[in-house]
Computed example of a mutant assay.
Amino acid sequence: MSGDNRAPFVVAHRGASALLPEHTLAAYELALEAGADGLECDVRLTRDGYLVCLHDRTVDRMSNGTGLVSEMTLDELRDLNFGTADRPASVLTLGELITLVLDWRSRPTKLFIETKHPVRYGALVENKVLAELHRFGIATPASADHSRAVVMSFAATAMWRIRRSAPLLPTVLLGESSRYLGGSAATSVGATAVGPSVRTLRDHPDLVDKAAAAGRATYCWTVNEPADVRLCAELGVSWIATDHPGRTKGLLAAA
């Protein structure tokens, strides 16, 4: 991940999640068809050790079931509907999403994987993510710029674990301005990029230049408003995560 003078790359936040249920295969396929340069997902571990693409600790908000993800098996999750009544969808595993990304032949697409913390399984989450990336042959890229996967977290310890085990894998330390405006947190864990919210970026537009001066890219979330898309482009943000990948690509192309 590196910044340049071109328009920001567009990352589909949980897929084309403004149009279809988040973290579903259909939402990610729609994002790819809309021209997204990257796909973003959150991952959690099931009780039997599988990584699934879900943001919340529970399944209550996005499915027709209830309960903690960490207390359910993959088969139990697959019995639930994460789509709609007229368009049901199964829970998506990280392996299935990686397969979609690698099989997409129109253009190379990056997968941005956010590990959720704190969780009952602790460091096992990062270990499982790395194992899955190794299984698909993308855990040790030739360089950060050519990596097909990026790992992100709000937890500095999670980023440290990834950098220690896979030094060429790009990482994004997510968080608000107090965490990294001075750069110390990102420096201590060796993160290759910082990930402010768009609200933080509005308040601290100099953050992008400060990150670049330290050799880091900037990943901004969640950028949905046209004015914020233009702001990110003007400031030189490297990657912008949005619920509207197709619309955002159009805005950038017209700028």
Results as ranks from 00 to 15, higher is better:
residue 79 D to Q: 14
residue 26 A to F: 07
residue 83 G to D: 10
residue 31 A to C: 10
residue 145 D to P: 02
residue 120 R to N: 12
residue 58 T to P: 11
residue 49 G to S: 02
residue 61 R to P: 03
residue 99 T to E: 15
residue 77 L to H: 11
residue 60 D to I: 06
residue 46 T to Y: 03
residue 106 S to L: 12
residue 124 L to N: 10
residue 136 F to T: 10
residue 70 S to W: 01
residue 31 A to M: 12
residue 120 R to I: 14
residue 28 Y to E: 04
residue 141 P to Y: 09
residue 81 N to D: 15
residue 46 T to P: 03
residue 45 L to E: 02
residue 96 E to P: 00
residue 95 G to I: 05
residue 34 A to F: 00
residue 80 L to R: 04
residue 118 P to G: 14
residue 48 D to W: 08
residue 31 A to K: 01
residue 97 L to F: 00
residue 63 S to E: 07
residue 57 R to N: 12
residue 134 H to M: 11
residue 94 L to N: 04
residue 125 V to F: 06
residue 32 L to C: 07
residue 28 Y to L: 06
residue 72 M to Y: 02
residue 135 R to C: 07
residue 58 T to E: 11
residue 81 N to Y: 05
residue 50 Y to R: 13
residue 33 E to K: 09
residue 119 V to F: 05
residue 135 R to W: 05
residue 64 N to Y: 05
residue 59 V to Q: 09
residue 103 D to N: 13
residue 37 D to K: 02
residue 101 V to S: 00
residue 122 G to Q: 12
residue 28 Y to T: 07
residue 27 A to E: 05
residue 46 T to W: 00
residue 91 V to R: 01
residue 60 D to K: 06
residue 90 S to K: 14
residue 111 L to A: 13
residue 146 H to S: 13
residue 46 T to E: 06
residue 129 V to T: 05
residue 56 D to Y: 00
residue 96 E to W: 01
residue 146 H to Q: 12
residue 79 D to E: 15
residue 112 F to D: 09
residue 114 E to G: 01
residue 117 H to A: 11
residue 96 E to M: 03
residue 25 L to Q: 12
